[in-house]
Design a protein around this nucleic acid. Sequence first.
DNA 1: AAGGTGACTAACA
DNA 2: ATGTTAGCCACCT
Length: 109
Amino acid sequence: MNFYQKVYSLVKKIPKGKVATYGQIASIISTPRAARMVGWALHVGAEENKAPWQRVINSKGMISTTCLDHPKDLQAYLLKKEGVEVKKTENNYFIQLDKYLWRPKKAKK
DNA sequence: AAGGTGACTAACA
DNA sequence: ATGTTAGCCACCT
């Protein structure tokens, strides 16, 4: 299984109304520092693999989409539809990780 | 094969 | 506090 295949698989496991960070996903996959790869993997074939790429954001809880044509508006819109509160800022969107961050395996310790 | 890029993260100034 | 630089790992040229 390719790296991004894992990414899609994991992303698809994110429950509705929750979000995850690139770093966390990368960490779960087995490459804690390949956060960049996660985003890139989604970039190449998220929709193709039917993965909810909109639920994946950066550590700050903001929609990065650094240099893509993907409108952040769309991502924010989708998240709102999912039930996630998306706060709009001047040039970006902000999500409360404390409330909506998905916790795989529920590692409460 | 080597170098460069990238939807990131974290540390340093 | 914010801004910039470096490290990171897989894919592309």
